[in-house]
Design a protein around this nucleic acid. Structure first.
Ligand code: FES
Ligand code: FES
Lengths: 143, 143
DNA sequence: ATTAAAACATGATATAAGTCATATTTAGGA
DNA sequence: TCCTAAATATGACTTATATCATGTTTTAAT
């Protein structure tokens, strides 16, 4: 579904959304442990996200990564698009090609509603939305 | 979601379900082209499935792979379990670990119902069921 | 029996995904 | 200004997945 890289990226971003702010930046190595991802790896992913303005960062002393108000409005789909490419989610369950509504494969009928709904949710829900769920105890960040 | 190998395996099995029978066995190399999978690769996958009694085969002249009445009753989930392992589908969207209903991750609420549904469908629907859909024109085998 | 056609078993290679290491640039503080 | 802490850029390494190749065993026909 998602690659490991996307999973890691999502976890890292949500972690930042909950625990960081413009005045409380977090070092890559300090994100690594709580989300259980090798630090050199998460650093690389965060750099990629930073380049696409999905997370914010400043370097030098007292630098680090953080999520600002603008980042908070970004939908989750942007994260997985940057890491996995835009249309990984559109691939047919039986083929490397894209899913095709006109010529549905045998699994299409019981897979497509799922995928469509998931994609819509990823477009609709922002980083901030998810952070709120975590803060209110409705959901949790897995290791 | 599924690995390419599982996709290929599913396609090959469904192809056999539609076009083969005990009296009409099909060679690995003749399955390869219509489902668009390298022949050495599909041969290997079919051998694995044969070892698990998901497809039938006989060797020697006039041999080949086929689906018999017993194979026809096998649910789709068995195919992907053999190729991808039993619990690839249960992994949490954000973690390599398994999905956990007691401590749902932020994506759980809009992913889990559908995944559960998908898994149930894979358990409920057999190879024969899918073949019937193809034969009746309700669905198609993708390249 | 001999031969040929096929699956079967095993392993080698290639490509992609994931992980690690190092050098460079930027920014803040002494 | 100089030093240090951090992100950044780039590339090397490792592991897993996907693909290919080769030899062996089984079966049926002659
Ligand atoms: S055509 Fe296969 S999932 Fe839609
Ligand atoms: S806990 Fe993440 S998908 Fe269920």
């Amino acid at each position: 579904m998602f690659s490991n890289s996307s999973k890691y990226a999502l976890k890292a971003v949500l972690y930042l959304a909950v625990y960081s702010s413009e005045s409380n930046k977090i070092l890559a190595k300090n994100i690594s442990e709580p989300i259980n991802v090798p630090q050199a790896y998460i650093a690389k992913l965060l750099q990629e996200l930073s380049r696409h303005n999905i997370v914010s960062s400043t370097r030098g002393p007292n630098g680090g990564f953080y999520i600002n108000a603008q980042n908070r409005e970004i939908p989750l789909i942007d994260i997985v698009s940057v890491i996995d490419g835009a249309n990984r989610l559109n691939s047919c369950l039986l083929s490397v090609q894209n899913c095709n509504n006109e010529k549905p494969c045998p699994l299409h009928s019981f897979a497509d509603p799922f995928r469509t709904d998931l994609i819509n949710n990823l477009k609709k829900n922002t980083i901030g939305d998810m952070a709120k769920d975590i803060e209110s105890g409705k959901s949790f960040l897995p290791l």
